[in-house]
Simulated assay, not measured.
Amino acid sequence: MLEAIIHGIILAFGLIVPLGVQNVFVFNQGALQPTFSRALPVVVTAAVCDTILILAAVSGVSLLVLTFGWLENIIFGFGILFLLFIGFSLWRSESASPDTEAERFTAKRQIIFAASVSLLNPHALLDTIGVIGTNSLNYVNEARWAFTGTTIVVSWLWFIGLAAAGRSLGKLDSSGKLMQGLNKISALVVWGVAVYMAIQLFGNVK
Rank of each mutant, 00 (worst) to 15 (best):
S89F: 03
L172C: 01
G69S: 13
L71M: 13
F68P: 05
I111Y: 01
K177D: 02
G170Y: 00
Q22T: 06
L162C: 08
T51K: 14
V193Q: 10
S175A: 04
A4G: 09
H123F: 12
L71R: 11
I112W: 00
L40R: 11
D173S: 01
A146Q: 04
L84N: 09
Q22C: 04
R92Y: 11
Y196H: 14
N204E: 08
V195A: 15
L81M: 09
I199D: 15
F78V: 11
E94L: 10
A107T: 05
Q33P: 00
L55R: 06
I52Q: 06
F159G: 03
A146H: 04
A164D: 05
C49V: 13
V48I: 15
Q180L: 03
F13A: 11
L84C: 14
V153D: 10
L19V: 15
A163G: 14
V58A: 15
V131L: 08
N73C: 10
W156L: 06
S95C: 12
A146C: 05
A143I: 09
S175H: 00
I129S: 05
K206N: 07
A143N: 10
S186G: 14
N28R: 10
R144T: 08
V21L: 07
T128P: 13
V43E: 14
S174N: 00
S95L: 13
P98Y: 04
S59D: 10
S95T: 15
S136T: 04
L126S: 01
L137P: 01
V205P: 03
I132Q: 04
L32K: 01
A165F: 12
G176F: 02
P18F: 04
P34K: 08
G69V: 11
T150W: 07
M179P: 00
E72L: 14
W156R: 02
I132S: 02
E72P: 00
R92D: 12
S89P: 02
K206S: 13
I74L: 15
I5D: 06
K177G: 01
V21I: 11
G149V: 01
V154L: 08
S97C: 12
F78Y: 07
F13C: 11
L83E: 03
G20L: 07
W158P: 10
R92F: 11
I6D: 09
S37M: 07
S93E: 13
I75T: 01
A102F: 02
V140N: 03
I129V: 10
I129M: 02
V140P: 01
G203Q: 15
N204M: 10
L188M: 15
I152D: 00
F76Y: 14
F85V: 15
